[in-house]
Structure formats: structure tokens, C-alpha cells
């Protein structure tokens, strides 16, 4: 690939002249897009601002300046939503292209600030003192509304994590790594049920052709939760065989999803989880002692796997 490639393609008649002139401008560097730079700045802006506000809001509770800043935040949130409703297009079941490059981030900012302020007001006036979990649920419902109304994948992911945390389950690989995942007993069962339920809902929504491009995000979170739950169950429960069957079932499902959607991420989940499950099964049954056997096992299982993937390379492109 060089700067002359577009011309070469044009001369071979593979692209038309109008296409060539457009592409050549970009490849030769005469026109430079700063799209991703701007997006990154916007994202960092939202990240820093909402984090700062999230802390700031709980300091100096009650003072006059505080009242003013809370009002300012409410105004900011209203401003964001005013912009979003005024500029944004009407709701559609299809994917909607944002009207401006920063539209999505204005919506995100508005939603996060609104939830921060609402959370603070509830904390201050204790409207829902009896059941605080409800706040998380309401937050999640609000995020779902925003996600569907403005066709926002980022807010949708936040909504799903909030919904999961209402059920006390954390969808965060960083948390799992630090070992705080499923600290309460039987939470892995909740994770499995949550994963299955939400995945079912997502698939039903897809069949009704409502926001079909959201399905991937749902399924991704659901498979992460499902597999994390099932693998935890496999390791800690006496009923490990049941969890093994669950893992295999999940793998078959993920495999089918991967093939249907041409999304290899699910394939990755399926293979890794199936491997973990099978290795555990073998460890429990046949392969007990002797480190040499484990070396042989890793060589032959992984080598065989690589051979399999390459053999069917047209299938796993």
C-alpha cells in the first residue's frame, strides 16, 4: 500500500474517477480528519467533568455556593437535553446517525450529570431511604430510556451495568481480577440467571426488529456474566458437573451466535470457556498426577486446536 495505490487502482479501472479523486485526497494526506482526536477529547472531557462533579457534589453539603453549583448542574443537564431533543431526530427502531459529531457526548454528559444530581438530591432529602437499591433500578431505567431514545450504545452499556448492579452483580473484569467478584454466596447463580434472562429479552427485541444493532452489546455483557458465573460455580460448587453442562450449553449458544452474526468475539468466549471446562473435567477424572501428562496435554490439546482452526480456515477467517 503506497500513496500511488489509488492511482494504480484507477488506471486498472477498478475504481471510478470521482472515487479516485476523493480517496486520493485522503491517502495523499492533503485532507486530514481529526475525527478521532475530537472524539477522544470529548470523551476525556465527560470523564473528568463527571468524576470531578461526582466528588464535588458531596462536599460542603448545605452551603450557599453549593446550592448555586447544584442549580448550575441542573441547568447544564437541562441544556444538554434541550439540545438533544431539539437537534436530534425522532425515535426510530433502526440505527440513527448522530446529527453532529459531538451529539452523542452531549447526551452522555446530560444523562450522567442528571443522574449525579438526582442521586445527590435523594441522598440529601432521603426520599427513598427505605430501599436504596431502588435508586439503582431507577437510574438504570432512566439510562435505558436515554439509550433507546437517542440511539446511544455507550449509555446502553451503562444501563446494563447499572441493572446488573441492582441484582448485586458486577460486570467489570477489573473487579473480577481483584477478586471482589461474587463475594456473597450464590451470587454466581444470580449472574447466570441474569445473563440468560437479559439475553432472552435482547433476542426477543431483535426478533421484533427493535434496535437490532443493540443486540451485540446485550449479548456481550450477558455472555461475560454467564460464563464468569458458571466458571465460578464450576470451581466452588459440589455440583460442578451441572455447571460444566451449563458452560457447554453456553458455548454452543455463543458459537451459534458467532456464526450467525459473523462476530468472532463470541467464538473466542466459546472456545476459551469450553477449554477451561474440559480441562477441569479431565483434571477431576483422568489426569490426576504427573506433571509430564500436563505438558503433553497442553501440547496436544492446543496444538490440535491450532490445527483445527487452520484446517478450517475458510470457516474461521
Amino acid at each position: 500500500m503506497t500513496k500511488n495505490t489509488p492511482r494504480e487502482l484507477f488506471e486498472k479501472g477498478l475504481i471510478r474517477e470521482d472515487q479516485f479523486s476523493k480517496i486520493d485526497l485522503i491517502i495523499s494526506g492533503k485532507v486530514v480528519s481529526v475525527f478521532y482526536e475530537l472524539q477522544t477529547l470529548l470523551y476525556l472531557g465527560v470523564l473528568l467533568f463527571t468524576t470531578g462533579v461526582g466528588i464535588l457534589i458531596y462536599m460542603n453539603i448545605g452551603s450557599l455556593g453549593h446550592l448555586i453549583s447544584i442549580s448550575a448542574l441542573i441547568l447544564l443537564s437541562i441544556g444538554c437535553f434541550y439540545y438533544a431533543f431539539k437537534k436530534g431526530v425522532a425515535y426510530s427502531n433502526e440505527s440513527v446517525k448522530p446529527v453532529t459529531p459531538y451529539f452523542d457526548y452531549v447526551v452522555l454528559l446530560g444523562a450522567l450529570v442528571f443522574v449525579s444530581v438526582a442521586g445527590y438530591l435523594q441522598f440529601q432529602f432521603g426520599i427513598l431511604n427505605e430501599n436504596l437499591e431502588l435508586v439503582t433500578l431507577i437510574t438504570s431505567v432512566f439510562f435505558f430510556y436515554i439509550a433507546y431514545r437517542f440511539d446511544h450504545l455507550g449509555v446502553l452499556s451503562v444501563a446494563i451495568t447499572a441493572l446488573a448492579s441492582f441484582w448485586s452483580v458486577s460486570i467489570s473484569p477489573q473487579k473480577w481480577y481483584s477478586g471482589t467478584f461474587f463475594e456473597t454466596a450464590n451470587l454466581h447463580i444470580v449472574a447466570i440467571i441474569f445473563g440468560v434472562l437479559v439475553a432472552t429479552i435482547a433476542l426477543v427485541l431483535e426478533m421484533r426488529r427493535i434496535k437490532m444493532h443493540f443486540t451485540f452489546t446485550y449479548l456481550n455483557f450477558c455472555s461475560l456474566l454467564f460464563f464468569a458465573g458458571a466458571i465460578t460455580g464450576l470451581f466452588i460448587s459440589a455440583w460442578w458437573f451441572v455447571y460444566l453442562l451449563l458452560i457447554y450449553g453456553g458455548c454452543v449458544f455463543a458459537y451459534l451466535m458467532a456464526m450467525r452474526r459473523k462476530s468472532f468475539l463470541f467464538l473466542l468466549y466459546a472456545f476459551i470457556c469450553a477449554y477451561i471446562g474440559t480441562t477441569y473435567l479431565l483434571e477431576k477424572t483422568i489426569l490426576r498426577d504427573a506433571i509430564e501428562i500436563w505438558f503433553l496435554y497442553s501440547i496436544f490439546s492446543c496444538g490440535g486446536f491450532i490445527y483445527f482452526i487452520i484446517k478450517f480456515k475458510n470457516y474461521f477467517k
Partner: peptide
């Protein structure tokens, strides 16, 4: 976005014992 911006929504999680939440609760 969901991994970095999910939190700091509400003070709710602070008091829920089972909340798998972070320091700022909610998310």
C-alpha cells in the same frame, strides 16, 4: 464508556451491603 463512566451516579450503593458497586455506588 460503561467501564469508566458507570459509577458516580448516586450515593445509593454506599449503604447497600451486597452492592457490587464501587466507591461511588450505583453503577
Amino acid at each position: 464508556v460503561s467501564q469508566t463512566l458507570g459509577g458516580n451516579q448516586s450515593g445509593a450503593g454506599k449503604q447497600t451491603e451486597t452492592g457490587g458497586g464501587g466507591q461511588f455506588g450505583g453503577g
